Structures are given as C-alpha cells and as structure tokens.
Simulated assay, not measured.
Amino acid sequence: MESSLRRTMEYSVSKVPQVTLGFWIVKIVATTLGETGGDWVTMSLKLGYLIGSAIFAAFFVALVAGQISARRFQPPLFWATIVATTTLGTTMADFFDRSLGVGYPGGVDIIFALLLLSLLAWYKTEGTVAVRSITTPRAEWFYWITVLFSQTLGTALGDWVAGSDRGGLGLGYEYGAMIFGGALVIVGALYFWPRVSRTAVFWAAFVLTRPLGATLGDFLDKPLADGGLELSRLYASLILLGIVVAWVALVPQRAASHADG
C-alpha cells in the first residue's frame, strides 16, 4: 500500500510544473505564440482552418502521448505540449467562429460548453479537477483535453472582445489586452483569499491568459488599418518561440508537489 502511494505521488510530482509567476509569464508568451503561429499556418500559408487544425491536432496527440509516457517532469516536453494546445486552440476557435459561420458569440458558447463537459467528465471520473489529481494516465488525458478547450475558449473570447465583425464587440486589441490583463490581476488577487477555491482560481487564470495572448498576438500581426502593428506572422512567431525556448533552457523549473493546485 505504501509503495503504491509512493508511485502515485511520484507520478504526480514528475509531470506538472510548480505554478509560479514565471509559469504565468511564459504561459502568456506561449499563448501569444499560439495566435501568431496558428494564423501563419492557416492564413499566411493559406492552408485554412480545417487543415491547420488537423496538422496541429496531430502534434497535440503525439506530444500528449509523449507526456504520458514520460516518467518524470520534462520542461521542454511540457511546454512544447502547451504550445501545441495554443496553436490548435487558435485554429479550432477560428474554425468554429468563421468556417462554421456561428460568429464569435456562437463560437464562445460552443467552446465554453465543451470546456464545461471536459471538466465535468474529469470531476465525475476522478472526483476532482485539481492539478494534484494528475496521478494516472487517464487523469493526465483529462488535464490536457481541458487545457486544450481552455486555450480554444480563450482564443474565441479574445476575438469576440477585440473583433468588430462576426458579432464581435469591436473594442480593439489594445483595450482587449487591458481588459483581460485586468481580469487576470483580479483573479490572481483572489488566490490569496482563503474562501476561494484555488483550483477554480487556477483554471480561471488559465483561461484568461489565453485571450490576453490572443489579443497581443493579433496586435502584433494584424494590419495597421485594423489596429495592429502588421508584423510578419512568421517573424513574430520565431521571436516568441525563441523567448519560450530561452526561458525553458535557462530558468530552473521544479515539478509541483502532490499538495499543489
């Protein structure tokens, strides 16, 4: 019994990084990369949202399988999988919003429902959706699917707030970034309120970092006439990728303990 518990805790510790300020900073950079990288494949290369989603889905499944088969926490593998969820989330959200013709509000509704279903299935199966519950391959699949839907929802939210077409609120990328950045600060402050579930705070922050990254990514590569800086999607993506790689290579990271999250 004791050896079984030890193996379970080692699995948990080995797979999930500690959630620190640095974690959230690189998460925002990775989500911004997901926006510019996803747009580069679907728009600049003109492959379309469906083909783009299929390409990134293949990377997502392969990397999650690698995550699950790994015996310990490996920062390069973990963050590569995060980037895969951000790029796939971008193309999936664009497919819902644009290719299916449901508009930004419709896309938000569909993806929000998928996220809730993922969390509900995870909770019903494991009894919790906390990071510390990732003690089996099944729980890890739930974790990554939930991460994917949270990234997709974040993209749809960012487009809905910033965009002026397809039912968007038309607030622009700068105001969109400020709105989501402010909401993220509020959620971060709630972390220190004992009565608020830290698990709920974690997932709320995880969702909010994505629209912040989405609006920042759109601000970098959208045309000047649309309020962007009109930078090359490829060059912006390479710069952001370089930041993520440098952070992973140079900043020490530790696996989360069984009591975290």
Score class of each variant (00 low, 15 high):
P223K: 03
P223N: 02
L224I: 03
L224R: 07
A225H: 11
A225G: 15
A225V: 08
A225L: 13
A225P: 00
D226I: 00
G227P: 03
G227S: 05
G227Y: 05
G227D: 02
G228Q: 02
G228L: 01
G228M: 02
G228P: 01
L229H: 08
L229R: 04
E230H: 09
E230W: 06
L231W: 11
L231H: 03
L231Y: 07
L231N: 00
L231F: 11
S232H: 10
S232T: 08
S232K: 10
R233F: 03
R233T: 03
L234T: 02
L234Y: 04
Y235G: 06
A236Q: 03
A236G: 04
S237V: 02
S237K: 01
L238N: 06
L238M: 12
I239S: 05
I239H: 06
L240E: 00
L240Q: 05
L240I: 07
L241D: 02
L241V: 07
L241M: 14
G242T: 05
G242K: 07
G242N: 06
G242Y: 12
I243L: 12
V244P: 00
V244G: 01
V245N: 02
V245I: 12
V245T: 04
A246N: 07
A246P: 04
A246F: 12
A246C: 07
W247C: 01
W247A: 12
W247G: 00
W247R: 03
W247K: 01
V248A: 09
V248D: 12
A249K: 14
A249E: 14
A249C: 13
L250T: 14
L250D: 11
L250Q: 10
V251H: 13
V251S: 12
V251N: 12
V251L: 15
P252Y: 11
Q253D: 08
R254W: 09
R254C: 02
R254A: 06
R254G: 04
A255D: 04
A255S: 13
A256E: 05
A256M: 05
S257F: 09
S257M: 07
S257H: 08
S257Y: 06
H258D: 09
H258K: 07
H258C: 06
A259S: 15
A259C: 08
A259F: 15
A259H: 15
D260P: 06
D260I: 03
D260R: 09
D260S: 12
D260Y: 07
D260W: 10
G261D: 13
G261Y: 15
G261N: 13
